[in-house]
């Protein structure tokens, strides 16, 4: 899927990737030259369960237009159960964010294994396209932290 570029809107997208599966999947997408938009910036975490909902709130407050969390497939977590914790936490967080006006499309959880470079790239292309369709994240603008 190709994302149509618009002059005025370059979304800021944060992708949290677990070290063992998704970060490696992103590496594989890279070494296989599977393109996705440069709007996606990856933060490496040891496990998807390391991602505190606070990190995601902070991203939106600082002006992120979308946040995606990628981890190992259910059952394949390097730490056995980390992605199950992440899944439950994100379910709660995303419903709360939706209630606050940060649409569900701006948040996503995806399981990407170390062997799934193609899936990583496809997921990022889809996600960026979705954020383009939603436009800039203005809902948390009032809460946006000013640089101190």
């Amino acid at each position: 899927m190709q994302v149509e570029k618009t002059q005025e809107f370059r979304p800021k997208i944060v992708a949290f990737c677990c070290n063992w599966c998704s970060y490696a999947g992103a590496d594989l997408a890279g070494s296989s030259r599977l393109a996705y938009p440069a709007d996606v910036k990856i933060i490496r975490v040891p496990c998807s369960c390391r991602v505190n909902p606070m990190f995601i709130l902070r991203a939106f407050q600082r002006g992120a237009d979308g946040v995606i969390l990628c981890g190992c497939h259910p059952g394949d977590c390097h730490y056995t159960t980390g992605n199950y914790y992440a899944r439950r936490r994100m379910t709660l967080l995303f419903s709360m964010l939706d209630y606050l006006g940060v649409e569900n499309g701006r948040t996503r959880v995806e399981w990407v294994s170390a062997a799934e470079g193609v899936k990583f790239s496809t997921t990022m292309n889809e996600f960026v396209a979705k954020i383009h369709s939603l436009g800039e994240n203005v809902r948390l603008g009032d809460l946006r932290c000013k640089k101190d």
């Binding site: 496990c47 390391r50 980390g82 914790y85």
Partner: peptide, 9 residues
């Protein structure tokens, strides 16, 4: 092993 599950809990 440093997964970080506890930090969020």
């Amino acid at each position: 092993q440093g997964c970080g599950a506890c930090t969020v809990a």
